[in-house]
């Protein structure tokens, strides 16, 4: 028999509230967004209020008639209105002295594409709420179409691979970097393979959202759209960090700092081989992807070094 330590994992200690969602909700098996959604209220506590959009999260964040899938207050929104609605809520609660942690819970399509303008506006005004974007690099809810968060070479239903088509021809919009340039009070990238890092960032987000705008960019691969074995999803997150495909960092008032250092980043193949969305990529395609990853990481490093 293996000796058991019987010591509770310290990550559990970050939870200040019980599960807020129903046991069974309509999110795909293995979806890391479900994990993000369930952990967020556990960490942020009672007075958090969701503003959600159409997208993968919506069928669960929003109720059906009088019924709800969770116990939190929420305001439903179309894609274009999320940060503005959060602004309205946080301004009003601030005015009447109501404690509230307003959280926008949106996908990358909303954050990087159709809902970008109000996000940028709210960030510029330093509105006091948390904007949480779960990035599954495309419109997964509507069937895996490309968004501007879709990375170069990726096969989606609107950037299909064919006789001529080689997947998406443009590089991913560097959303975390764009948001960094807004100089939010706090921002961070995180993913669920690095739970303690993620949760600490959530806690900091709550605290900092009392002072100004907070942006969280969460890597959240889609087992269905990316064609990943559902059991490997956390592993994909981990490999994304280890290959520098998705570096983990945070920034207070525009000063970036890497929170998880990767000493010897693995080649991108270690990440792409776990999914079929890149399976058509030949050497040159992989090289192009590697180049994108290296460039983005170099830019981040430059800014990190400049900030210190």
């Amino acid at each position: 028999m293996v000796e058991t330590t019987k010591k509770r994992n310290r990550v559990f200690n970050y939870f200040c509230q019980d599960e807020q969602f129903a046991g069974g909700v309509a999110w795909c098996a293995g979806c890391p967004m479900e994990l993000i959604a369930r952990l967020t209220p556990k960490v942020l506590g009672k007075n958090m209020i969701f503003v959600g959009t159409p997208g993968c999260a919506a069928p669960v964040l929003h109720g059906q008639n009088i019924g709800a899938w969770h116990r939190m207050a929420y305001l439903a929104s179309v894609m274009t209105g999320v940060p503005s609605k959060a602004t309205g809520l946080s301004r009003y609660y601030n005015r009447i002295g109501q404690d509230a942690t307003v959280v926008c819970f949106t996908g990358d399509g909303c954050a990087t594409d159709v809902g970008f303008q109000p996000l940028s506006g709210a960030a510029e005004r330093q509105e006091k709420f948390i904007y949480l974007a779960y990035d599954n690099e495309g419109y997964m809810n509507t069937g895996n179409q490309r968004s501007s968060a879709t990375q170069i070479g990726a096969a989606t239903t609107t950037t299909p691979v064919g006789k001529i088509g080689k997947g998406k021809s443009n590089a991913q919009k560097n959303m975390p970097m764009i948001m960094l340039m807004h100089k939010p009070t706090y921002m961070a990238t995180a993913t669920v393979s690095h739970l303690e890092d993620f949760i600490k960032k959530l806690q900091k987000a709550k605290e900092k959202s009392k002072e100004g705008f907070v942006y969280l960019h969460l890597f959240s691969p889609c087992p269905v759209g990316w064609r990943i074995d559902s059991s490997k999803v956390i592993e994909v997150c981990r490999e994304a960090v280890r290959t520098n495909y998705f570096p983990l960092w945070e920034a207070e008032n525009g000063k970036p700092r890497i929170t998880v250092n990767v000493a010897n980043p693995k080649p991108i193949l270690e990440f792409t081989k776990l999914m079929r969305k890149y399976s058509h990529l030949k050497e040159d395609g992989l090289a192009e992807l590697q180049k994108q990853v290296d460039e983005r990481y170099a830019l981040l490093k430059t800014l990190v070094n400049a900030g210190t």
Partner: peptide, 26 residues
């Protein structure tokens, strides 16, 4: 009043909508 200098009309309506739903006069 809280005065929000929004970045577009769509946001103006969304801001007041949310504040109204929260109970405010907008």
């Amino acid at each position: 009043s809280e005065f929000v200098e929004v970045e577009g009309e769509n946001s103006a309506m969304n801001v007041v909508l949310a504040a109204s739903v929260a109970g405010g006069r907008v």
